[in-house]
Design a protein around this nucleic acid. Structure first.
Lengths: 331, 331
DNA sequence: TTGAAAGCGCTACCAA
DNA sequence: TTGGTAGCGCTTTCAA
């Protein structure tokens, strides 16, 4: 069975007794067309179910109207919110989001190839861990590109990122001020650099305050993993009185595991998470956590893309946004 | 500043001293090309950073390799999982997901226009509430299309859906068998038909069992809304001993609100949710809920798409999948 | 094994 | 206000 082709502007032209160019002009909303012609073209188009072929248009205009949304190894519920928001903003700028997703970093090279084949007008990368090889590839690309929430130094690529180091320091200050002196940091190599940066700020600030931080790494990113790592921590009999988790899901898992072991939060152990996912605010948890300025950061992403797409130059530097500590009941 | 065009096959041809057709043949993996030529083409392509233009290819092949993923009014975290899974499956079939998202139903007409302009090879609609006008539009379309988890009767459109009515009846049976006799149903017009179908099964089964169901509707779909509606229910002083929520987020909000009012779950009030989102299984909630056979249903979606894309015919009927009651600790 | 040439559906230029 | 025509980058005949 052959796929039958949809009607073309040529067919509309024939039926409406105008030239194909006229049909094109009508549909691209150019003026200088008589009302009568316009009406006739539209009505015959309607009749035969004609829709302009975006592919052909893209070919000739050398722009696809597509924006690539690249999500790599995204398991964090925080990004579900981001993905929806990004997609919807792309549509609001009258373009379409072409969605690329890869479980692991290994897929990235292949993905970049795909992205480029579609001649997308812009690229938004969400939280991607990037290999140096990958970064090198990205540098070559002329397409406007912005990396959201991953600190990366690539020439000609805009980076919009939370100030994770500062947040780490703030977490340390907060815990210290609440009287905690035996801190644990729980990170994840699932979002390596981000986690590392938070760790760095946390550890160095606590050192300044005279406390040593115990560092734990958990690989899969999930609630369950948070439980497991705390279970092991408890079993190990090491002393600790506070935990800073690089992500809320860990923190929530940690809370439940502590409760299981009849350890009181925040009296015995204080906990801080990261991301302020919806569930963090629920009565069962009331998690103290950091909120990223997602809206503001996305504003910055799109402001950058917009000017680049307009053909204007724009410094492709790194922009850091502070995170806000939301104090609830786990510290 | 002009957007500079990426290299074309013609340029590769010139440098590699072959014809443009040869370059094309090399990149589309046709055989009948000498190894020497192949190597020469690839290396010059590499050198100047050539990548085939998917747009031009789409134009001539009359297929875009794009699959539209249309999500309408999706607020349910359940769909975040689905969206990621669908996107990743589309890529596995060597196509790209073009993501369309609309907050409300009103955007659908416009979206369909967009979808068709891109000459997508297939369409996957996620949980869309559809107006009759919309459905009429869809009927006209020749593009293979499958609707996931929304009961809709449209000619030539495959529907893959959970058996919500059966689940409603199962919920009633379960509650009844646990001794509950004063049931409440909490639905949402956010996912109108789905909610209505669950309601229908629930109410009619309970009627058969001799109990009357109190029906509540909540419009926004969120945890917070679940709290609010239960707060009002409690204030209204009506008797009830069990609640069937059309979605987990409602149920979780309901649980917390009941706890606030010192009403015990499941002793005083039993609660059943729907979707089995991750949080339902957490220790703080242990929600009895229904799990949809998402994987199996997606298998069916893609099996259908695959055969249609292969050009084979395939009955575009409605396929219903049973939901499994997961009995935890709220009933 | 390769090259020349036609043409996919559209936009944009030049004439009329 | 309109029509004719060239050409976007590719695939695919048909010839060589």
């Amino acid at each position: 069975m052959k796929k039958q082709s949809p009607p073309t502007s040529k067919q509309v032209a024939e039926i409406a007794k105008v030239s194909q160019s006229t049909v094109s002009r009508v549909f691209s909303g150019m003026d200088g067309i008589s009302e009568a012609t316009k009406k006739r073209v539209f009505s015959t188009a309607e009749k035969i179910g004609y829709r302009p072929n975006a592919i052909a248009r893209s070919l000739i205009l050398n722009r696809s109207n597509l924006i690539a949304m690249v999500a790599l190894g995204v398991q964090n519920p925080y990004y579900n919110v981001v993905i929806n928001e990004v997609a919807s903003r792309i549509q609001k700028m009258n373009r379409e989001p072409l969605f690329f997703i890869a479980e692991k970093e290994k897929g990235v090279d292949q993905i970049l190839g795909q992205v480029m084949q579609y001649r997308v007008d812009g690229i938004i990368v969400l939280s991607a861990e990037m290999s140096p090889a990958m970064a090198a590839e990205f540098e070559k690309i002329k397409t406007p590109m912005v990396i959201f929430n991953k600190l990366t130094h690539i020439a000609n690529v805009k980076t919009i990122c939370s100030d994770n180091e500062k947040a780490g320091r703030d977490a340390a200050d907060h815990l210290f001020s609440r009287g905690y002196r035996e801190p644990v940091f729980v990170g994840s190599s699932t979002f390596h650099i981000t986690s590392l940066t938070r760790e760095k700020g946390f550890v160095s600030r606590f050192e300044e305050l005279g406390c040593k931080v115990q560092i734990l790494q958990q690989i899969p990113y999930s609630y369950q993993a948070g439980k497991v790592i705390i279970e092991e921590l408890i079993k190990s009999q090491t002393h600790f009185d506070s935990i800073f988790c690089a992500a809320d899901l860990f923190a929530l898992g940690a809370i439940d595991q502590l409760r299981n072991s009849s350890i009181r939060v925040p009296e015995d152990v204080g906990i801080i998470g990261f991301d302020n996912i919806e569930f963090a605010s629920w009565p069962s948890y009331q998690l103290t956590t950091f909120s990223q300025q997602t809206e503001t950061m996305l504003d910055a992403c799109f402001a950058y893309l917009d000017t680049k797409l307009e053909g204007h130059e724009n410094g492709s530097d790194i922009q850091l946004f502070p995170c806000e500590l939301i104090h609830r009941k786990t510290t």
